[in-house]
Nucleic acid binder design. Structure first.
Lengths: 195, 195
DNA sequence: CGATTTCATTGACTTTGGTTAAGAAAGTAA
DNA sequence: TTACTTTCTTAACCAAAGTCAATGAAATCG
Protein backbone atom coordinates (compact mmCIF):
# COMPACT_ATOMS: atom_id res chain seq x y z
CA UNK A 1 0.00 0.00 0.00
CA UNK A 2 1.37 3.39 -0.95
CA UNK A 3 1.65 6.41 1.34
CA UNK A 4 -1.20 8.89 1.06
CA UNK A 5 -0.20 11.89 -1.01
CA UNK A 6 -0.07 15.41 0.36
CA UNK A 7 -3.26 16.22 -1.54
CA UNK A 8 -5.07 13.17 -0.17
CA UNK A 9 -4.02 14.28 3.28
CA UNK A 10 -5.30 17.80 2.70
CA UNK A 11 -8.52 16.42 1.31
CA UNK A 12 -9.07 14.26 4.36
CA UNK A 13 -8.63 17.28 6.60
CA UNK A 14 -10.95 19.47 4.55
CA UNK A 15 -13.54 16.71 4.48
CA UNK A 16 -13.86 16.74 8.25
CA UNK A 17 -15.66 20.02 7.73
CA UNK A 18 -17.01 19.38 4.24
CA UNK A 19 -17.94 15.71 3.82
CA UNK A 20 -19.64 16.39 0.49
CA UNK A 21 -16.67 17.92 -1.25
CA UNK A 22 -16.22 16.00 -4.48
CA UNK A 23 -13.14 15.21 -6.53
CA UNK A 24 -14.04 17.89 -9.02
CA UNK A 25 -14.20 20.58 -6.34
CA UNK A 26 -11.06 19.33 -4.81
CA UNK A 27 -9.10 19.35 -8.04
CA UNK A 28 -8.74 23.10 -7.65
CA UNK A 29 -6.20 22.53 -4.92
CA UNK A 30 -4.11 20.26 -7.12
CA UNK A 31 -4.26 22.72 -9.97
CA UNK A 32 -3.20 25.68 -7.88
CA UNK A 33 -1.07 24.20 -5.18
CA UNK A 34 2.61 23.51 -5.33
CA UNK A 35 4.39 20.75 -3.48
CA UNK A 36 7.56 21.83 -1.72
CA UNK A 37 9.95 19.74 0.31
CA UNK A 38 12.18 21.37 2.89
CA UNK A 39 15.20 19.80 4.52
CA UNK A 40 15.79 20.32 8.21
CA UNK A 41 16.71 23.95 8.97
CA UNK A 42 15.69 25.16 5.52
CA UNK A 43 13.54 28.27 5.52
CA UNK A 44 10.30 28.60 3.65
CA UNK A 45 9.48 32.29 4.07
CA UNK A 46 11.79 35.05 5.16
CA UNK A 47 11.00 38.29 6.93
CA UNK A 48 10.91 41.65 5.20
CA UNK A 49 8.41 40.83 2.47
CA UNK A 50 4.63 40.81 2.49
CA UNK A 51 3.51 37.20 2.88
CA UNK A 52 1.65 35.86 -0.14
CA UNK A 53 1.37 32.17 0.62
CA UNK A 54 -0.19 29.72 3.00
CA UNK A 55 1.05 26.18 3.41
CA UNK A 56 -0.49 22.89 4.41
CA UNK A 57 1.96 20.65 6.23
CA UNK A 58 1.73 17.10 4.91
CA UNK A 59 4.48 15.78 7.12
CA UNK A 60 7.21 17.39 9.19
CA UNK A 61 7.35 20.35 11.53
CA UNK A 62 8.04 24.05 11.12
CA UNK A 63 8.48 27.01 13.39
CA UNK A 64 7.76 30.68 12.88
CA UNK A 65 10.21 33.02 14.56
CA UNK A 66 11.49 36.59 14.65
CA UNK A 67 14.71 38.26 15.63
CA UNK A 68 15.06 41.13 18.09
CA UNK A 69 18.53 42.54 18.53
CA UNK A 70 20.12 39.29 17.60
CA UNK A 71 17.86 37.20 19.82
CA UNK A 72 15.40 34.82 18.26
CA UNK A 73 11.87 34.49 19.60
CA UNK A 74 9.68 31.64 18.43
CA UNK A 75 6.04 32.50 17.88
CA UNK A 76 4.43 29.27 16.76
CA UNK A 77 4.86 25.73 15.51
CA UNK A 78 3.12 24.01 12.60
CA UNK A 79 3.02 20.24 12.38
CA UNK A 80 1.54 17.70 9.98
CA UNK A 81 -2.11 18.38 9.19
CA UNK A 82 -1.84 22.05 10.17
CA UNK A 83 -1.71 25.26 8.18
CA UNK A 84 1.20 27.67 8.26
CA UNK A 85 1.41 31.23 7.03
CA UNK A 86 1.33 34.85 8.06
CA UNK A 87 -2.14 35.93 7.09
CA UNK A 88 -1.81 39.14 9.07
CA UNK A 89 1.07 40.25 6.87
CA UNK A 90 -0.89 39.41 3.71
CA UNK A 91 -4.14 40.97 4.86
CA UNK A 92 -2.54 44.23 5.99
CA UNK A 93 0.02 44.35 3.24
CA UNK A 94 2.73 44.62 5.88
CA UNK A 95 6.19 43.11 5.56
CA UNK A 96 6.34 40.02 7.72
CA UNK A 97 8.72 40.20 10.67
CA UNK A 98 8.69 36.42 10.88
CA UNK A 99 10.75 33.64 9.35
CA UNK A 100 9.31 30.19 8.76
CA UNK A 101 11.76 27.33 9.02
CA UNK A 102 11.59 23.54 8.95
CA UNK A 103 12.65 21.78 12.15
CA UNK A 104 12.51 18.43 10.35
CA UNK A 105 12.31 17.34 6.77
CA UNK A 106 8.92 18.72 5.80
CA UNK A 107 6.57 18.47 2.85
CA UNK A 108 4.18 21.30 2.13
CA UNK A 109 1.40 22.18 -0.22
CA UNK A 110 1.86 25.88 -0.91
CA UNK A 111 -1.06 27.95 -2.13
CA UNK A 112 -1.28 31.68 -2.60
CA UNK A 113 -3.68 33.48 -0.28
CA UNK A 114 -5.04 35.34 -3.26
CA UNK A 115 -5.89 32.18 -5.16
CA UNK A 116 -7.32 30.60 -2.08
CA UNK A 117 -9.68 33.55 -1.64
CA UNK A 118 -10.69 33.20 -5.30
CA UNK A 119 -11.36 29.55 -4.68
CA UNK A 120 -13.61 30.41 -1.76
CA UNK A 121 -15.53 32.76 -4.06
CA UNK A 122 -16.08 29.90 -6.48
CA UNK A 123 -16.94 27.30 -3.88
CA UNK A 124 -18.79 29.09 -1.11
CA UNK A 125 -18.90 25.85 0.87
CA UNK A 126 -15.21 26.34 1.46
CA UNK A 127 -15.99 29.44 3.47
CA UNK A 128 -16.97 27.33 6.44
CA UNK A 129 -13.68 25.49 6.27
CA UNK A 130 -11.68 28.66 5.89
CA UNK A 131 -13.53 30.25 8.81
CA UNK A 132 -12.85 27.21 10.93
CA UNK A 133 -9.12 27.32 10.29
CA UNK A 134 -8.98 31.07 10.88
CA UNK A 135 -10.99 30.73 14.02
CA UNK A 136 -8.70 28.05 15.40
CA UNK A 137 -5.70 30.27 14.79
CA UNK A 138 -7.42 33.14 16.55
CA UNK A 139 -8.32 31.04 19.56
CA UNK A 140 -4.76 29.73 19.72
CA UNK A 141 -3.34 33.25 19.65
CA UNK A 142 -5.79 34.40 22.32
CA UNK A 143 -4.74 31.57 24.62
CA UNK A 144 -1.07 32.17 24.00
CA UNK A 145 -1.55 35.80 24.91
CA UNK A 146 -3.28 34.95 28.16
CA UNK A 147 -0.63 32.41 29.06
CA UNK A 148 2.20 34.85 28.50
CA UNK A 149 0.44 37.34 30.75
CA UNK A 150 -0.81 35.17 33.56
CA UNK A 151 1.60 32.26 33.90
CA UNK A 152 5.19 32.16 35.10
CA UNK A 153 7.87 30.66 32.83
CA UNK A 154 7.72 27.53 34.96
CA UNK A 155 3.94 27.23 34.55
CA UNK A 156 4.26 27.92 30.84
CA UNK A 157 6.66 25.01 30.53
CA UNK A 158 4.26 22.67 32.31
CA UNK A 159 1.42 23.81 30.07
CA UNK A 160 3.58 23.35 26.99
CA UNK A 161 4.38 19.79 27.99
CA UNK A 162 0.68 19.10 28.60
CA UNK A 163 -0.50 20.63 25.35
CA UNK A 164 2.31 19.51 23.06
CA UNK A 165 3.22 16.10 24.41
CA UNK A 166 3.98 14.93 20.88
CA UNK A 167 6.29 17.82 20.08
CA UNK A 168 8.60 17.98 23.08
CA UNK A 169 10.96 15.42 21.64
CA UNK A 170 10.89 16.90 18.15
CA UNK A 171 11.88 20.45 19.10
CA UNK A 172 15.35 21.40 20.43
CA UNK A 173 15.28 22.76 23.97
CA UNK A 174 16.71 26.11 23.03
CA UNK A 175 13.80 26.64 20.67
CA UNK A 176 11.26 25.59 23.28
CA UNK A 177 12.96 28.14 25.53
CA UNK A 178 12.47 30.78 22.83
CA UNK A 179 8.79 29.85 22.65
CA UNK A 180 8.44 30.19 26.42
CA UNK A 181 10.26 33.51 26.41
CA UNK A 182 13.24 32.39 28.50
CA UNK A 183 16.90 31.44 28.01
CA UNK A 184 17.89 27.84 27.37
CA UNK A 185 19.85 27.75 30.65
CA UNK A 186 16.69 28.67 32.53
CA UNK A 187 14.70 25.97 30.78
CA UNK A 188 17.38 23.47 31.69
CA UNK A 189 17.01 24.47 35.36
CA UNK A 190 13.22 24.25 35.23
CA UNK A 191 13.48 20.75 33.76
CA UNK A 192 15.90 19.76 36.48
CA UNK A 193 13.42 20.87 39.16
CA UNK A 194 10.75 18.77 37.46
CA UNK A 195 12.73 15.54 37.99
CA UNK B 1 -24.45 73.33 20.37
CA UNK B 2 -25.40 69.93 21.75
CA UNK B 3 -23.01 67.04 22.22
CA UNK B 4 -23.07 64.45 19.47
CA UNK B 5 -25.08 61.41 20.49
CA UNK B 6 -23.56 57.95 20.84
CA UNK B 7 -25.25 56.92 17.59
CA UNK B 8 -23.92 59.96 15.72
CA UNK B 9 -20.49 59.04 16.99
CA UNK B 10 -20.84 55.44 15.84
CA UNK B 11 -22.11 56.62 12.48
CA UNK B 12 -19.12 58.91 12.02
CA UNK B 13 -16.79 55.99 12.71
CA UNK B 14 -18.62 53.63 10.37
CA UNK B 15 -18.65 56.27 7.66
CA UNK B 16 -14.87 56.40 7.56
CA UNK B 17 -15.16 53.04 5.87
CA UNK B 18 -18.59 53.47 4.30
CA UNK B 19 -19.12 57.07 3.21
CA UNK B 20 -22.31 56.17 1.36
CA UNK B 21 -24.14 54.69 4.30
CA UNK B 22 -27.47 56.47 4.49
CA UNK B 23 -29.71 57.29 7.44
CA UNK B 24 -32.04 54.47 6.52
CA UNK B 25 -29.26 51.91 6.62
CA UNK B 26 -27.94 53.35 9.78
CA UNK B 27 -31.27 53.26 11.58
CA UNK B 28 -30.72 49.55 12.10
CA UNK B 29 -28.18 50.34 14.77
CA UNK B 30 -30.57 52.59 16.63
CA UNK B 31 -33.33 50.00 16.43
CA UNK B 32 -31.17 47.20 17.73
CA UNK B 33 -28.65 48.88 19.97
CA UNK B 34 -29.04 49.70 23.59
CA UNK B 35 -27.38 52.61 25.35
CA UNK B 36 -25.76 51.74 28.65
CA UNK B 37 -23.94 54.03 31.04
CA UNK B 38 -21.41 52.60 33.46
CA UNK B 39 -20.01 54.38 36.48
CA UNK B 40 -16.33 54.06 37.29
CA UNK B 41 -15.46 50.51 38.40
CA UNK B 42 -18.80 49.10 37.25
CA UNK B 43 -18.56 45.88 35.27
CA UNK B 44 -20.25 45.34 31.97
CA UNK B 45 -19.63 41.64 31.32
CA UNK B 46 -18.54 39.03 33.81
CA UNK B 47 -16.60 35.85 33.26
CA UNK B 48 -18.18 32.42 33.23
CA UNK B 49 -20.80 33.00 30.54
CA UNK B 50 -20.59 32.86 26.76
CA UNK B 51 -20.32 36.45 25.51
CA UNK B 52 -23.29 37.56 23.43
CA UNK B 53 -22.65 41.28 23.04
CA UNK B 54 -20.32 43.74 21.49
CA UNK B 55 -20.13 47.37 22.59
CA UNK B 56 -19.18 50.63 20.95
CA UNK B 57 -17.59 53.06 23.39
CA UNK B 58 -19.07 56.54 22.95
CA UNK B 59 -17.03 58.07 25.76
CA UNK B 60 -15.05 56.64 28.65
CA UNK B 61 -12.60 53.81 29.04
CA UNK B 62 -12.88 50.14 29.86
CA UNK B 63 -10.51 47.29 30.54
CA UNK B 64 -10.83 43.57 29.98
CA UNK B 65 -9.17 41.42 32.60
CA UNK B 66 -9.00 37.93 34.04
CA UNK B 67 -8.09 36.45 37.38
CA UNK B 68 -5.52 33.73 37.98
CA UNK B 69 -5.20 32.49 41.55
CA UNK B 70 -6.33 35.77 42.95
CA UNK B 71 -4.11 37.85 40.68
CA UNK B 72 -5.67 40.05 38.04
CA UNK B 73 -4.16 40.27 34.56
CA UNK B 74 -5.35 42.96 32.18
CA UNK B 75 -5.69 41.91 28.57
CA UNK B 76 -6.86 45.02 26.76
CA UNK B 77 -8.29 48.52 26.97
CA UNK B 78 -11.17 50.03 25.02
CA UNK B 79 -11.54 53.79 24.75
CA UNK B 80 -13.96 56.16 23.02
CA UNK B 81 -14.53 55.28 19.38
CA UNK B 82 -13.40 51.68 19.85
CA UNK B 83 -15.25 48.38 20.03
CA UNK B 84 -15.22 46.11 23.04
CA UNK B 85 -16.31 42.51 23.35
CA UNK B 86 -15.13 38.95 23.50
CA UNK B 87 -15.87 37.66 20.03
CA UNK B 88 -13.75 34.58 20.61
CA UNK B 89 -16.06 33.49 23.43
CA UNK B 90 -19.14 34.09 21.26
CA UNK B 91 -17.74 32.46 18.16
CA UNK B 92 -16.56 29.33 19.93
CA UNK B 93 -19.45 29.18 22.36
CA UNK B 94 -16.94 29.14 25.21
CA UNK B 95 -17.52 30.78 28.58
CA UNK B 96 -15.50 33.96 28.72
CA UNK B 97 -12.67 34.03 31.24
CA UNK B 98 -12.61 37.80 31.07
CA UNK B 99 -14.36 40.59 32.91
CA UNK B 100 -15.02 43.95 31.28
CA UNK B 101 -15.02 46.92 33.62
CA UNK B 102 -15.25 50.69 33.27
CA UNK B 103 -12.19 52.63 34.42
CA UNK B 104 -14.12 55.89 34.04
CA UNK B 105 -17.74 56.81 33.62
CA UNK B 106 -18.46 55.23 30.25
CA UNK B 107 -21.30 55.26 27.74
CA UNK B 108 -21.78 52.30 25.44
CA UNK B 109 -23.94 51.21 22.58
CA UNK B 110 -24.49 47.52 23.15
CA UNK B 111 -25.46 45.27 20.27
CA UNK B 112 -25.75 41.51 20.19
CA UNK B 113 -23.23 39.72 18.01
CA UNK B 114 -26.05 37.67 16.57
CA UNK B 115 -28.03 40.71 15.49
CA UNK B 116 -24.96 42.37 14.13
CA UNK B 117 -24.27 39.35 11.94
CA UNK B 118 -27.87 39.50 10.74
CA UNK B 119 -27.36 43.15 9.92
CA UNK B 120 -24.30 42.32 7.88
CA UNK B 121 -26.39 39.79 5.96
CA UNK B 122 -28.89 42.51 5.14
CA UNK B 123 -26.35 45.21 4.30
CA UNK B 124 -23.42 43.47 2.65
CA UNK B 125 -21.58 46.79 2.53
CA UNK B 126 -21.17 46.48 6.25
CA UNK B 127 -19.00 43.43 5.71
CA UNK B 128 -16.06 45.63 4.81
CA UNK B 129 -16.50 47.59 8.01
CA UNK B 130 -16.86 44.49 10.12
CA UNK B 131 -13.78 42.96 8.50
CA UNK B 132 -11.82 46.11 9.14
CA UNK B 133 -12.66 46.13 12.83
CA UNK B 134 -11.94 42.40 13.16
CA UNK B 135 -8.71 42.81 11.31
CA UNK B 136 -7.57 45.64 13.54
CA UNK B 137 -8.26 43.53 16.60
CA UNK B 138 -6.29 40.67 15.09
CA UNK B 139 -3.31 42.86 14.27
CA UNK B 140 -3.39 44.33 17.77
CA UNK B 141 -3.39 40.86 19.32
CA UNK B 142 -0.54 39.74 17.07
CA UNK B 143 1.58 42.72 18.10
CA UNK B 144 0.78 42.25 21.75
CA UNK B 145 1.88 38.64 21.48
CA UNK B 146 5.17 39.57 19.89
CA UNK B 147 5.82 42.27 22.45
CA UNK B 148 5.21 39.92 25.36
CA UNK B 149 7.67 37.47 23.83
CA UNK B 150 10.45 39.71 22.63
CA UNK B 151 10.51 42.76 24.90
CA UNK B 152 11.52 43.09 28.53
CA UNK B 153 9.05 44.61 31.01
CA UNK B 154 11.03 47.83 30.80
CA UNK B 155 10.81 47.93 27.02
CA UNK B 156 7.12 47.05 27.18
CA UNK B 157 6.57 50.04 29.44
CA UNK B 158 8.35 52.37 27.02
CA UNK B 159 6.30 51.00 24.13
CA UNK B 160 3.11 51.40 26.13
CA UNK B 161 3.91 55.03 26.82
CA UNK B 162 4.66 55.60 23.12
CA UNK B 163 1.55 53.85 21.86
CA UNK B 164 -0.90 55.00 24.50
CA UNK B 165 0.24 58.50 25.34
CA UNK B 166 -3.36 59.53 25.88
CA UNK B 167 -4.14 56.69 28.27
CA UNK B 168 -1.24 56.77 30.71
CA UNK B 169 -2.92 59.36 32.90
CA UNK B 170 -6.32 57.72 32.74
CA UNK B 171 -5.27 54.26 33.90
CA UNK B 172 -4.06 53.55 37.46
CA UNK B 173 -0.47 52.36 37.60
CA UNK B 174 -1.32 49.03 39.15
CA UNK B 175 -3.53 48.25 36.16
CA UNK B 176 -0.85 49.31 33.69
CA UNK B 177 1.42 46.93 35.60
CA UNK B 178 -1.14 44.15 35.12
CA UNK B 179 -1.17 44.92 31.41
CA UNK B 180 2.61 44.74 31.25
CA UNK B 181 2.67 41.48 33.20
CA UNK B 182 4.55 42.84 36.21
CA UNK B 183 3.82 43.93 39.80
CA UNK B 184 3.00 47.55 40.60
CA UNK B 185 6.17 47.83 42.70
CA UNK B 186 8.24 46.88 39.67
CA UNK B 187 6.48 49.43 37.50
CA UNK B 188 7.18 52.04 40.14
CA UNK B 189 10.88 51.19 39.98
CA UNK B 190 10.91 51.31 36.18
CA UNK B 191 9.26 54.72 36.26
CA UNK B 192 11.82 55.96 38.75
CA UNK B 193 14.65 54.90 36.43
CA UNK B 194 12.95 56.83 33.63
CA UNK B 195 13.22 60.12 35.51
C1' DC C 1 34.38 5.89 11.35
C1' DG C 2 36.52 10.17 13.63
C1' DA C 3 36.31 15.18 13.52
C1' DT C 4 33.59 19.02 14.13
C1' DT C 5 29.82 21.54 15.27
C1' DT C 6 25.73 22.19 17.82
C1' DC C 7 23.18 21.63 21.90
C1' DA C 8 22.36 20.85 26.86
C1' DT C 9 23.88 21.19 31.39
C1' DT C 10 26.20 23.11 35.31
C1' DG C 11 28.38 26.53 38.34
C1' DA C 12 29.45 31.20 39.88
C1' DC C 13 27.83 35.51 39.76
C1' DT C 14 24.68 39.54 38.44
C1' DT C 15 20.45 41.56 37.52
C1' DT C 16 15.74 41.85 37.66
C1' DG C 17 11.48 41.25 39.34
C1' DG C 18 8.54 39.39 43.32
C1' DT C 19 7.35 39.74 48.35
C1' DT C 20 6.36 41.95 52.45
C1' DA C 21 5.63 45.80 55.06
C1' DA C 22 5.37 50.59 55.95
C1' DG C 23 4.26 55.09 55.01
C1' DA C 24 3.25 59.02 51.71
C1' DA C 25 0.26 60.90 48.36
C1' DA C 26 -3.87 61.32 46.07
C1' DG C 27 -8.62 60.75 45.64
C1' DT C 28 -13.36 60.47 47.69
C1' DA C 29 -17.00 61.24 50.69
C1' DA C 30 -19.15 63.11 54.78
C1' DT D 1 -12.50 71.01 55.97
C1' DT D 2 -11.65 66.24 58.07
C1' DA D 3 -11.72 61.32 57.83
C1' DC D 4 -11.31 57.49 55.14
C1' DT D 5 -9.95 54.75 51.33
C1' DT D 6 -7.27 53.73 47.55
C1' DT D 7 -3.15 54.07 45.06
C1' DC D 8 1.74 54.83 44.73
C1' DT D 9 6.32 54.67 46.39
C1' DT D 10 10.16 53.03 49.01
C1' DA D 11 13.12 49.81 51.36
C1' DA D 12 14.96 45.35 52.73
C1' DC D 13 15.05 40.88 51.50
C1' DC D 14 14.23 36.78 48.58
C1' DA D 15 13.65 34.02 44.46
C1' DA D 16 13.96 33.48 39.75
C1' DA D 17 15.86 34.32 35.51
C1' DG D 18 19.86 36.32 32.86
C1' DT D 19 24.90 36.22 31.90
C1' DC D 20 29.26 34.25 31.23
C1' DA D 21 32.14 30.49 30.97
C1' DA D 22 33.36 25.70 31.02
C1' DT D 23 32.28 21.02 30.20
C1' DG D 24 30.26 17.15 28.28
C1' DA D 25 26.80 14.96 25.26
C1' DA D 26 24.66 14.48 20.97
C1' DA D 27 24.09 15.25 16.34
C1' DT D 28 26.09 16.14 11.87
C1' DC D 29 29.22 15.71 8.28
C1' DG D 30 33.03 14.51 5.51
Amino acid sequence: MSEPSAYQHLKSIVQIQLPHLNEQDFSFFEENGEIITLEKNETWELEGKVSQYMAFVHYGLMRQFGINDGNEFTVDFFKEGEFAGNYISFQNNLPSELITQALEKTELIVLSFKRFLELVEMLPDLQAFSDMVGNQKLLKMHRRNNTLLKNSPEERYDLFVEDHQDLIHRIPQYIIAQYLGIRPESLSRIRKRRM
